[in-house]
Structures are given as C-alpha cells and as structure tokens.
Nucleic acid binder design. Structure first.
Lengths: 198, 198
DNA sequence: TAACATACGTACATGCATGTACGTGAGCGA
DNA sequence: TCGCTCACGTACATGCATGTACGTATGTTA
C-alpha cells in the first residue's frame, strides 16, 4: 500500500470514529484514546493526522457539513418552489440523520451554546447560514402566497430547523415513520395544511 | 439566622447555580468550583450539602422535574379534551423554557444518550413517563375523532415532544413568537389543521 | 456557660486526559 | 543499496477537576 493511500485511509477511519464519539459523548467527554482504538489505531496516529483535539473536532464538523449539503441542502434547493424545497429539506434531513453521525451538530450546538470556543463558533456559523437560507425560502413562499403569513421569517426558520432536528433526534431513526412526522412538523411550523405532511 | 434556614438558603442557591451551569455547559464540563462561586460559596459548602457531583445533578433534575409538572404537566392534563391538553402542553412548555433552566433536561439527555449513567437513567425514566402520557392523550384524541390517524401513537408522541423541545430551544425564548410557533409545531405533528396553531 | 453539633472554608491527594518527545519500521528516491 | 522521510507506537510530563481530611466559627442544647 502506498503512503498517501494508507494515510488517507487512517484519516477517514479516525474521522468516522470521532464523529460517532462526538455524537455519543460530546466534545468534553470524548476520550481520544477511545477514538483511536475504535478506529484501530493509537493516539500516536491521531496526533500525527490532527494537530490536537480541537482540530479533530473541526475536521469532523467540516466533513459533516459538506456531506449534509451534498445529500440534503443542494437537492432541496433544486426543488421548483419554496414549499417543496422546505418539505424536501425536512425529509432528506431525516434520512440523513438515520446515521447517528448527524447528531454531531446537535450535540455540539447544545454543548457550546453561545460560548467563545472555536468549535462552537464554527457550529454557529454553519447554523446561521442555514437559518438564512431557510428564511429566504420562507419569504419567497410568502410572496407568492404558498406560505401563509406569521411571525418574522427568521423566527420561523429557527423554529423550523429546531423542530425538525428535535423530532428526528427523538425518533432516533425509527424508520419509516420518522420521515412522515418530520414533514408534518415542517408543514405545521410554516402554517400549511396537514395535507402537505403526507 | 437559624441553622435550618441558613442551610436551606445555601442549598437552593447551589441548586439554582448548578441548574444554570448544567444547562450551559452540561454535566462533564460543569466545574463545581464555578457553581459554588456563582452561588456565593466554595466547594466546601457544596460537598457539605451534596454527596458528590452526581448527587448534585440528580437533585437538579428532580427539582426541574417537579416544577415542570407543577407549571406544565398538571395544568395541561386538566384541559377538557386531548387536543387542548396537547396544545396547552406545548405552549406552557415554551413559557417554562424561557428560563434557561429548562434546557437542563435537553442538555443532559443529549449528553448521556443511552449511556449507563445514573443521571442518564433518571432522565430516561422521566422522558419515558412523559412520552407515555402523551401517547395516551393521542390515542384518546384519535378515538373520539379529534386527532386524525397516522403513525403509532408512541412514535407521534416522541416526535411531538422532540419537535416542541427543539423548536423552543432554537428560539431561545424569543417571546412572543415562540409560543405560537410551538403550538404550530404541536398541531403539525398531530396532523391537525393549521387553525389549531392559532 | 460549657459542651456539642452544624455550616462552611482550606489544603492535600488522587486520577485521568491531554499534549509532547522520542523510538521503530516500512516506503521511496538517488 | 544507502539514506531519508513518513506513518505510527510508546513513554513521560503537565494541568485540572474531583473527592477527602481537617480547621474554624457560629448556632444549639444541657
């Protein structure tokens, strides 16, 4: 096996183990020796691939973020209208979260709150852009009448994302009901008829 | 000041500081010296009032649980019908959560997941009874036709509580929109018309 | 008022996780 | 094939939070 191949393999193994560990225990309770052992290595390999614990966590966050946009964000925004985009986002997010990896974001957001920590700041940055895009979709839907009026779009977007995430985590991948229930949640927050949940 | 009075005062001060600390930093990241300082004491007082960190956390959980039932659970169950009870639960829970203290449950549930920790077990026990009571309400509402059919009542109850909690936390006490949005979420999960959200 | 109990502060010991320095063996170019 | 670099393991040092033992001062009871 060549060196670059070997290095990439161990790096991704460590990333996956770290993602699972972060979603289960959070950042503070995450023990790097456990992460390395889970991936089949020791802390030596981990500190060779990543500068420190924070660097590892940021790498995990970035990895989850990019795969999320690939599997959830982009397909949803390619929908023809705003309502379809928002419902698709809820459904795809649900499917995405069936892998426990997705709980990483939730766990870290809860853990760091509004603290001044690099990982927390990155999580906040990602969340803010997501909220902005959802708010834009909501405003578009309201302009063409497909979404009824209500609280400010930003507040609705916050509630939308929080509610979908909360429901998905509570259901913990209870397929196949999770997808329908997430759609119901999304429709409810937006003030749509229950028919949109089906 | 008499001794029992003095002791009760410091105990409640420590409990409140611990609740705030737990909701902000979680269990693992909670530093007992900070808790004591926030309450105006030192770790000596804390270890005199509570056996150890775990005992303190369990006391906080119990305190939050009883106040929750007093301010949210019981008033909601006194509603005449199942739908009113569930919507009232969502609204009252939102108001309850405007004090950041309520984030304690969410933070601890995320942190301990399904781990074998006394605090995690207690959180799970409380959550399970809540889910059961919600499921009972949903089944009652379906029997008399006020709630349309859908996924199993237990799954709906899980999604209901998770979505409301997620929305409330995301909104972070953005009164007054939070209450309306929580009601919308609740109605949506149950499959009701959007009119119930108003 | 004298003896005791209680509330709380202080100082020390322990464990544990992180980060770093160093050693080893396998690729890789000259 | 010789020397270098890279991937990884091992061993040590440091910091930090917990828990405990002990000291002190203020109520409390006889």
């Amino acid at each position: 096996m060549t060196q670059v191949e070997r290095s990439a393999r161990t790096r991704s193994a460590l990333l996956e183990a770290a993602a699972q560990g972060l979603s289960r225990y959070g950042y503070g309770n995450l023990v790097l020796e456990e992460v390395a052992r889970e991936a089949g290595y020791t802390r030596g390999a981990l500190y060779h691939q990543f500068k420190d614990k924070e660097d590892l966590a940021l790498a995990v966050v970035e990895w989850v973020d990019t795969t999320w946009w690939h599997e959830v964000g982009e397909p949803a925004e390619n929908q023809p209208d705003a309502v379809s985009a928002l419902i698709a986002l809820a459904r795809r997010h649900t499917v995405f979260c069936r892998r426990d990896v997705a709980r990483v974001m939730m766990a870290l957001r809860v853990e760091f709150g509004d603290q001044d920590h690099p990982v927390g700041r990155e999580i906040q940055r990602i969340s803010r852009t997501l909220v902005k895009r959802c708010a834009t979709l909501i405003e578009a839907g309201r302009r063409n009448g497909s979404i009824p009026p209500g609280p400010p779009a930003k507040a609705v977007a916050l509630a939308f994302l929080g509610a979908v995430e909360g429901a998905v985590i509570a259901l913990a991948g209870q397929a196949p009901h999770d997808e329908l229930l997430a759609a119901r949640v999304a429709a409810g927050v937006l003030g749509l008829d229950s028919s949109h949940g089906a």
